[in-house]
Design a protein around this nucleic acid. Structure first.
Lengths: 118, 118
DNA sequence: GATGCTACTTACCAAAACGAAACTACTTAC
DNA sequence: GTAAGTAGTTTCGTTTTGGTAAGTAGCATC
């Protein structure tokens, strides 16, 4: 009798690893929301971004942006105005998350609808 | 002078909320991977699922499955064999995550490639 | 009757994530 | 000189999450 084991093909295993990697890079409560905000808006200054993401503390936003920058999903640009302003935007790598963000956005909206219907 | 504030349209705000909701439902290190495994394989028994998700402890798997069940993404079926077996599968609600899972899978695979190229 | 399989649970602990509040440093405006 | 806006950092503490190891309970096999 064959043991019920890996029904998963190699391609599925690869995709599964992909899901895991993506999850790891977007870990935590805020990263997807930050990426989504930058995706929908293009650019944001620190204060302006924090105003658009309800409930996030500056310390947390700062840390999350650093993480995203380290993984090359977000670009940070200091602009030499008075006072100094800093702009955040998605890198091309970050922009390539568009399908993920859009799928999550849509699914979330539909999920909410389907819950309310009951 | 206009204050640089909500450049985001109402539709974007809605999508953003959707992203947040999705993120909340799939929070933590394992939920997306569990959903993806069930998506690629259809059904899994507890032990078999735990074998396919490397590194997850039974306690954690149990808890994550309960969370997913509570949010109606996963269905749990007890089958009265000897010894008892339990099957887990996605609900239709869970299956509707297909776009999210596929987008994450693909992006992850591509990200890995692009990192290795350097 | 000891071992092993099923599907978990329990107890305990460590680490990471998150959060509130205050503070820094610079400049402009009043 | 006082307040307000820029972009954060620091401190401290709580909460959540994840992990290890062992235990449970029923049955089946050796």
């Amino acid at each position: 009798m064959k043991k019920e084991k890996s029904q998963l093909t190699d391609i599925c295993q690869l995709q599964l690893q992909g899901v895991k990697d993506t999850q790891d890079l977007l870990s935590g409560k805020w990263k997807t929301v930050i990426v989504a905000a930058l995706y929908y808006n293009g650019k944001f200054r620190f204060m302006n971004l924090s105003r658009h993401i309800e409930g996030i503390a500056p310390k947390v936003l700062s840390k999350e942006l650093k993480d995203l920058e380290m993984n090359q999903l977000v670009k940070r640009t200091v602009i030499d105005t008075m006072p100094i302003t800093v702009e955040y935007e998605l890198t091309s790598q970050g922009k390539s998350l568009n399908k993920v963000i859009e799928a999550m956005g849509e699914w979330g909206v539909n999920y909410r609808k389907s819950i309310l219907k009951k």
